[in-house]
Amino acid sequence: MKPLLPLLLALTTPVAMACSLAPQSLNFQGPQVASVQYQKGVRADSEEPFIRAVVLYKDADMAVVESRNCEMENYSVNYFSSQGSVDKTRFEALLAPSPLKKVTLAKPLLAQLPSSPGFKDLSDQVTFAEGQVELLASYQSLEDALSPFHSLVSVSLALGGAD
C-alpha cells in the first residue's frame, strides 16, 4: 500500500503554473504623489504573479494599478477622482509601464475614455500583431455612494493568448 501513497500525492498536489511572462515592474513618483504602496504576489484564482501599486495623490485622488502577466499581459488602472475629472498627465504616467506601447490605436486612448457614466469596449480600435487584444474603459459616478471620491475611471488591457 505504501508505493501508492507517493503516486496519489503526486496526482492530487496542485502544480504551480509555469509562466512565460513576468509582471511589469511599477514605479510611480512625482511632485503630486503623496505615497505609493506596492504589493507583489500570486493570485490564488489564476496562479498569475502580479504587482499592484496603490498611488495616493496630494489632492486626495487615488489610483490602483495592477500588472499581472503569465501567458498573457494584463494591465489595469483604476483612477479614483476626488474632483470628478481625470488628470490626463497622471493617467498617462499610470499607463506608461503598460504594454500599450506594443499596440496601434486608431485614436489616442485618453481621447476615447468615457466622460460620462458608461462602458466602452475599445478592442476594435486596437491592432496587435502578436495575438489577441482586449481594451476596455469605463467611467462610474461615485457621488451617490458613501465615498470620498466623485468618479472612477478604469482601463483594462489584455494582450496575447490564443486567437
Rank of each mutant, 00 (worst) to 15 (best):
L56P: 00
Y139K: 11
S76M: 13
C19A: 08
Y139D: 13
K107W: 01
P49W: 05
Y79A: 01
P23V: 01
Q132H: 05
M17A: 05
F149P: 04
Q29C: 06
P99G: 12
L105Y: 05
V103P: 12
K2L: 15
G84Y: 07
L122Y: 05
L109A: 02
M72D: 09
G161F: 00
C70Y: 00
L8E: 08
A111P: 10
S46P: 02
K2A: 15
D45I: 05
T127N: 12
A162T: 14
S151Y: 10
Q125I: 09
N74G: 15
P31S: 12
C19K: 03
L8K: 02
S35P: 04
D59V: 11
L9G: 06
A18P: 13
P117W: 09
M17P: 00
F91W: 04
A137I: 03
A162E: 15
L157Q: 08
K102C: 13
P6H: 03
R90T: 15
L157R: 05
L95K: 00
E143V: 13
S147I: 06
S82W: 00
A158T: 15
L7S: 01
D163I: 00
K120T: 10
E48N: 14
A44E: 14
L56T: 09
L146D: 14
Q24V: 11
A10Q: 08
V33G: 02
P49H: 06
V153R: 03
A145R: 10
